[in-house]
């Protein structure tokens, strides 16, 4: 496997013991009823992997800021174990399988990193990420992340409010939307080479200005106390906890403030299935599957953790007012 400097950390530091023990208990339970289980050695029942996982300390300029980040918002739900969050990703630039990003993004070069800011701002230009981060304070926030595919995880991000970043560029009065663009780099991103892939690169996403300025809207640069792993969208990505995961665009190289609604990749690919707003909404199903429930990951076989999906992913008190008067069946 292509893993840079796999710094070893004890699994106890990253996986809550209860989760760890539960998983082992499940494994044993399964072994009792399993078909071929009897033929396998007992050692196969132990969860291996965890201590072998890489950690991502990040560039020197970022490390002190990550360490100093206070925890400000915490979802009550159990945090997902580290291995689940860094090995189960949708990041089609590296492939369409959930394991592709972890397997293929480890050499992805994310420092130094430049971000082009353009459109309806008084100070457009190409900025070094390091310089942008120098002007903001980082905080840790534990958010629920609900994928449009009806699974979810609870993730401890480190980041800063998107609003505090946008203010640095002085948006003009014409700025009604924000558009984000992911890197295109066929050398580093094998998923962008595929002939059959139906996504048009670059991946783009957008938010309405009031959504972008909302205090819950985060730009993440870290995860589990360290920097953002490449497979999770390093060096910095959007996190909008009340929207489906595909809105939270990764590895951003350009931010444009616009007067009209920007194009968003999934919305362009299948407009009948993925709306521009993409707010988590249990009452509006995806045409092919239900959004009423979700599977909270990591799930085990005997405990699939099927839970009811909450309106705006449980952040309705904070964000419902943004959409008052809107027909959310139409603007899904």
């Amino acid at each position: 496997m292509l893993i840079q400097k796999p710094n070893k950390i004890p699994s106890s530091e990253i996986t809550p013991e209860s989760v760890y023990l539960n998983r082992r208990r499940f494994m044993q339970a399964f072994a009792g009823v399993g078909l071929a289980a009897a033929a396998l050695p007992a050692s196969a029942l132990l969860s291996s992997g965890d201590t072998e996982l890489p950690i991502y300390p990040g560039p020197n300029w970022l490390q002190p800021k990550l360490k100093a980040a206070p925890t400000t918002i915490v979802a009550e739900d159990d945090v997902a174990p580290y291995d689940a969050v860094i090995t189960h990703n949708n990041f089609y630039e590296f492939g369409t399988k959930k394991s592709d990003p972890f397997e293929k993004a480890q050499e992805f070069n994310t420092d130094p990193w430049k971000v082009e800011v353009s459109g309806e701002v008084e100070s457009p230009g190409v900025y070094n990420l390091e310089d942008l981060i120098a002007k903001v304070d980082l905080e840790e926030r534990v958010y629920r992340l609900r994928c449009v595919e009806a699974w979810s995880m609870v993730i401890p991000w480190i980041g800063f409010e998107l609003g505090s970043l946008l203010k640095q560029f002085n948006p003009t009065s014409k700025a009604k939307y924000v558009e984000f663009v992911t890197l295109v780099d066929k050398e580093q991103m094998p998923g962008q080479r595929g002939f059959f892939s139906s996504l048009d690169w670059p991946y783009t996403e957008g938010l309405r200005m009031d959504e972008a300025m909302h205090p819950l809207t985060l730009m993440a640069v870290g995860l589990y106390g360290n920097s953002l792993p490449p497979q999770n969208g390093a060096p910095f990505r959007l996190v909008v906890p009340w929207k489906y995961g595909f809105k939270s665009i990764k590895s951003i190289v350009a931010i444009r403030l616009t007067e009209t609604m920007p194009k968003a990749t999934w919305n362009q690919t299948a407009p009948g299935e993925y709306g521009f707003y993409a707010n988590v909404n249990p009452k509006v199903d995806h045409p092919r599957w239900s959004q009423a429930t979700e599977r909270r990951l990591p799930a085990s076989l005997l405990n699939p953790r099927i839970i009811d999906t909450q309106m705006f992913n449980g952040y309705a008190d904070e964000v419902a007012s943004l959409y008052s008067g809107m027909d959310l069946t139409k603007w899904y």
């Binding site: 494994m27 399993g34 959930k98 599977r295 799930a299 085990s300 076989l301």
Partner: peptide
């Protein structure tokens, strides 16, 4: 295929969402 799948499951190689993979 079934034997390999059960083996991968018991060795915890099916990832965070074993249900979907299976």
């Amino acid at each position: 295929p079934l034997v390999l799948l059960v083996d991968a499951l018991l060795a915890n190689r099916l990832g965070a969402d074993p249900a979907k993979t299976i």
